[in-house]
């Protein structure tokens, strides 16, 4: 069954294990491809990962004049093809989330490919495999729907999810606030 990356931002503790694990993926040349931000470091320890959301109609690929950014049949938006990327960096500007990174030495864009060598066979990407807090999870659509129900506040909205920013994404995100819908045991 098809699985997706699902993010529950409220759980993040800022350990950056996802970034360490990203470097371990066979195809990643030991470079991490995502981000973890300190939300307001002078105030508290809140952190959040910023992962590629693998847009259904990705701005990065649309902006690429060389068709270097391919979309895998699983929906994963792949890293730039070495032989096609011309290093124009259009994608880094086009992406509304600022995901693609650029290697100036290689003149090459690189980004999250959802560990395609793993996820094409249903194996969770490294980040979601190791995440100690379940901020990053690898779920079926049914499981994501169950999450949606769990966090439903009876107002027709999945309380913590925002409308799409740029367009529909393959990765589903749950913003901080997941505990709002939880009924306390006592």
């Amino acid at each position: 069954m098809k699985k997706r990356l699902y993010l529950e931002l409220e759980n993040c503790i800022g350990c950056r294990s996802c970034l360490a694990a990203c470097t371990q993926c066979g195809g990643h040349e030991e470079r991490n491809r995502n981000y973890v931000y300190d939300v307001n470091p002078l105030l508290n320890r809140q952190t959040m990962p910023l992962m590629c959301l693998h847009c259904v109609n990705p701005a990065c690929a649309r902006s690429c004049p060389a068709q270097a950014i391919q979309i895998h049949e699983t929906g994963a938006v792949l890293s730039a093809l070495v032989e096609k990327c011309i290093g124009c960096q259009n994608c880094t500007i086009a992406c509304p989330y600022g995901i693609p990174k650029f290697d100036t030495e290689q003149n090459l864009m690189y980004k999250c490919d959802l560990c395609i060598d793993r996820s094409k066979d249903g194996i969770p990407p490294m980040c979601a495999s190791v995440c100690p807090t379940n901020t990053l999870q690898w779920l079926t659509d049914d499981e994501i729907e169950a999450k949606q129900k769990q966090f439903n506040l009876d107002n027709g909205k999945w309380v913590t999810s925002l409308p799409y920013l740029e367009g529909e994404t393959n990765v589903k995100v749950n913003l901080p606030g997941i505990l709002q819908g939880v009924t306390k045991l006592f």
Binding site: I13, G14, N44, R45, T133, L185
Partner: peptide, 28 residues
């Protein structure tokens, strides 16, 4: 979270079920 991170999913799991987490620490 910093010292034994891989038990954190279980700690958050308590809250997900509606249970309580109480922490005594000079630091937040």
């Amino acid at each position: 979270a910093d010292c034994h991170p891989t038990m954190m999913f279980r700690v958050w799991g308590i809250q997900e079920r509606g249970g309580y987490v109480i922490v005594a620490d000079p630091r937040e």
